[in-house]
Write a protein that binds this DNA or RNA. Structure first.
Length: 476
DNA sequence: ATGTGC
């Protein structure tokens, strides 16, 4: 497929119809400019995905899409429960990588430079960040089992969560069907001490200011106002989820031969949903999904403790927690009929519209909050899910800006000192565990988040609610 | 993303 072969549906929607041995159409939601700048690898990967057995509806490519392992990061594919497959490439290596935003009742302009300095320092001290970094909590085997089964709800019994935190987490912080028996010993060993830690790569903790409100009515429902200080956490299932995916790539290598699944490239190793191997992956992946919900919840507890020690009468409540690397069993209307499908969201956020089951009651009328994490030092956005997303993208939307340069290219072009200086000029305090990590995450290595958000808003897949500007950025 | 590469 080349960009020229795409058919224009509207200024922000393009389709490549099913042909040859493809099993579905491919639908892009973005401006012409973003489409034209898209890597050819994204188009090739989308075509490969559309060849997988049992694809339902369209393969969806979002404006933040970029080259990933097997699937583009920033894509969605749903599969039939009988004919379809589950894949590692469709989930992403960091299972349930996701974001949550915490509201505070602090107003930025009322804080002193000293307050901000102290906040940055204490958050950096109290929230472990960096590759292989361990936290303070060591889970016993029995407790880890509970985390795998109960997710963020495990935190309730241990004083790391409030009932409200659970209510405002996707899936209420726990998906069903987790089977700890399908998780390897190696994954369990790698978990040791990692709960409550940020990790590295694009993971971060940011203190941000609500800079602009685009939709006052929805912002009010979400409890957001201009000048408000908010805190956003971006991380996933750490070495635990990573090991589970590594284990299943090996298992799927034999599965594709055993079940004679024609895959276009080895990065799309998979197994039928209705097979022992598929059932095992789903059981294990759900353990990692639950682990990541608990991880973000423990970090929330650490953030809350830290902030409460610095400011008097401060309140820290959860706006919402969203996952953007998952495979989930959901009910969607496809060609006018309700049906169960397995939705792979790879670098894509669930963004359910108004009235859809699964959204907290408080947000039911306006659609769920979607948190779009900017790259380091750039704006983040709060969006709301729409009815159109339910119709066209299995209730899915963007997750971030999307890379334009590989980690290696970024390292060569944007050394640490340059990046820190650049952020300083913008008034952002950067606290980092690794210089190399900072170079890899240079803002110039990413697409323009404002343009990506504009594309998704104009296409009607999500509604713009608020823009967040970072003031403190803590990196792994 | 991750005990740097499935």
């Amino acid at each position: 497929m080349t960009i020229r072969e795409l058919e224009k549906v509207s200024d922000f929607e393009w389709v490549y119809s099913k042909r040859g041995s493809m099993n579905s159409d491919i639908r892009f939601f973005c401006s012409k400019e973003i489409l034209e700048s898209m890597d050819q690898a994204v188009l090739d990967q989308a075509v490969n995905v559309s060849h997988l057995p049992g694809v339902v509806g369209d393969v969806v490519v979002l404006p933040d899409a970029h080259w990933g392992y097997g699937f583009p990061i920033g894509s969605v594919a749903a599969f039939d429960e009988d004919e379809g497959v589950v894949t590692v490439g469709g989930v992403g290596f960091d299972i349930n990588c996701g974001v949550r935003t915490l509201r505070t009742n602090l107003v930025y302009h009322k804080l002193s430079e000293k307050d901000i300095e102290k906040l940055a320092q204490r958050l950096f001290e109290n929230i472990p960040a960096g590759l292989g970094k361990e936290g303070k909590i060591k889970l016993s085997r029995k407790e880890l089992n509970k985390v795998m089964l109960e997710g963020a709800r495990w935190c309730l019994e241990n004083g790391f969560a409030t009932e409200e935190d659970i209510e405002f987490t996707e899936e209420r912080g726990r998906v069903g069907g987790a089977v700890p028996d399908y998780v390897s010993e190696e994954a369990i060993e790698r978990e040791e001490g990692q709960i409550g830690t940020l990790g590295s790569g694009n993971h971060y903790l940011e203190v941000q200011v609500v800079e602009e409100i685009y939709n006052g009515d929805i912002a009010q429902v979400y409890g957001l106002f201009e000048g408000q200080l908010v805190i956003t956490i971006h991380c996933g299932s750490r070495g635990f989820g990573h090991q589970i995916n590594t284990d299943f790539l090996k298992i799927f290598r034999t599965a594709v031969e055993k079940y004679k699944i024609p895959i276009k490239e080895k990065e799309l190793l998979c197994a039928p949903i209705k097979s022992k191997e598929g059932e095992m992956y789903l059981g294990a992946v759900r353990c990692a999904i639950n682990y990541a919900f608990a991880n973000r919840q423990v970090i929330t507890h650490l953030v809350r403790e830290t902030v409460k020690k610095i400011f008097r009468n401060v309140e820290v409540s959860l706006l919402y927690d969203v996952a953007h690397n998952t495979v989930k069993e959901e009910v969607h209307v496809v060609n006018g009929k309700k049906r169960k499908v397995f939705v792979h969201r790879k670098g894509s956020t669930r963004g359910f519209g108004p009235g859809k089951e699964g959204i907290p009651k408080k947000y039911l009328e306006v659609g769920q909050p979607v948190i779009v994490g900017g790259s380091m030092g750039t704006a983040s956005y709060i969006l709301a899910g729409t009815d159109l997303a339910m119709e066209k993208t299995f209730g899915s939307t963007i997750h971030g800006a999307g890379r334009t340069l590989s980690r290696n290219q970024a390292k060569k072009n944007f050394p640490y000192e340059k990046v820190v200086k650049q952020l300083e000029m913008k008034g952002i305090k950067l606290m980092s565990a690794s210089k190399q990590g900072v170079a890899e995450e240079a803002p110039q290595a990413y697409k323009d988040i404002d343009e990506v958000v504009k594309s998704i808003a104009k296409s009607g897949i999500s509604t713009k609610v608020a823009k967040l500007r970072p003031i403190i950025s803590i990196k792994g």
